[in-house]
């Protein structure tokens, strides 16, 4: 869904700019200006993150974008600090594990809700959807109590378990499985595959674009997750990257230049993930276009 939604507005924009070629100019200029302003707004925080990471501590509160005396001292410090590497690995393990889990289980449940008729199917679907309405802030206390009871505090499983499946992912996958023709599934059934084999060998390869989008969302979501990891972890070794970064410095003095350096480094995996999966998304859209 989300992948499709991001494509649609551009398609519309192309259509509207092509259709009437009359007084477009004024409107077009305004549109460009708005887009430009939007672009600046998006890029500024990233620019400042990079800029701050290259500054000496005394220069951090200067608003100038170009550091007066650029330095890579912060990077050497952060990378040589053993804690950073540990947090990076923690975050990586958690983001990868939750991504794999979501890919498997969101799609399995989404597929079942989409392609099977059984009593209570609609109720199950609504129940899953309704959990989307509950904000994380409301859930952290029950989660915490639960983790305490089961002894999951300060462990990988404790950090991961709330995100192993998501209602959003289930919904996304259900919607995408609607695009898989029933004939494909019935043909496989006649050929003697069992339902799990049909899901894996027939349905899953056909929704790769959706799986790629889901992988990006889940990876990013867990990579940047802050509140829950902060609450469930106690020991510095179990911190995830965002939690660890925020602990740089102390109450009196936040070491912004180090936090920004860590943040800059931590965007790298998200970039990698995006570059890997984005190909599938674009290819998926192209394929869908050819079919239609």
């Amino acid at each position: 869904m989300a992948a499709v939604d991001t494509i649609r507005p551009t398609a519309n924009a192309v259509l509207t700019t092509q259709a009437p070629k009359k007084p477009a100019n004024m409107g077009q200029i305004i549109r460009w200006l708005l887009l430009f302003a939007g672009g600046i707004l998006m890029v500024m925080p990233i620019a400042y993150m990079l800029s701050t990471s290259l500054k000496w501590p005394h220069e951090v509160y200067n608003v100038n974008l170009i550091p007066v005396e650029p330095t890579i001292e912060n990077y050497t410090y952060v990378l040589e600090d053993g804690r950073f590497f540990g947090w990076f690995i923690n975050s990586l393990i958690i983001a990868i594990a939750t991504t794999i889990s979501n890919i498997l289980f969101d799609s399995l449940v989404g597929y079942t809700l989409c392609k099977f008729r059984f009593p209570g199917r609609y109720i199950v679907f609504i129940a899953i959807l309704s959990t989307l309405m509950i904000p994380t802030e409301m859930l952290v206390i029950p989660w915490y109590l639960m983790s305490q009871q089961f002894g999951w505090l300060d462990s990988y499983w404790g950090i991961m378990f709330p995100g192993m499946m998501t209602a959003f992912g289930t919904f996304l996958m259900k919607q995408f499985f609607e695009t898989v023709p029933d004939d494909f599934i019935e043909a496989a059934r006649i050929d003697g595959l069992n339902e799990l084999q049909i899901w894996w060998t027939v349905a899953m390869p056909l929704v790769k674009p959706a799986l790629a989008a889901l992988a990006i969302f889940v990876f990013l979501g867990n990579w940047t997750a802050f509140i829950w990891p902060l609450i469930v972890t106690n020991s510095v070794e179990m911190y995830t990257l965002p939690v660890g970064l925020s602990s740089f410095g102390d109450e009196a003095d936040v070491a912004w230049e180090l936090i920004m350096t860590g943040a800059a480094i931590s965007t790298l995996p998200t970039l990698v993930v995006f570059l890997i999966f984005q190909r599938f998304i674009i290819r998926g859209v192209v394929m869908a276009g050819l079919k239609g």
């Binding site: 023709p181 004939d183 043909a187 059934r189 006649i190 003697g192």
Partner: peptide, 16 residues
């Protein structure tokens, strides 16, 4: 279906 000794060809082919 798989035990009925039949095979079916669908309108939109259902080839993968």
């Amino acid at each position: 279906p798989k035990h009925r000794d039949i095979a079916m060809v669908f309108q939109n082919y259902a080839i993968y």
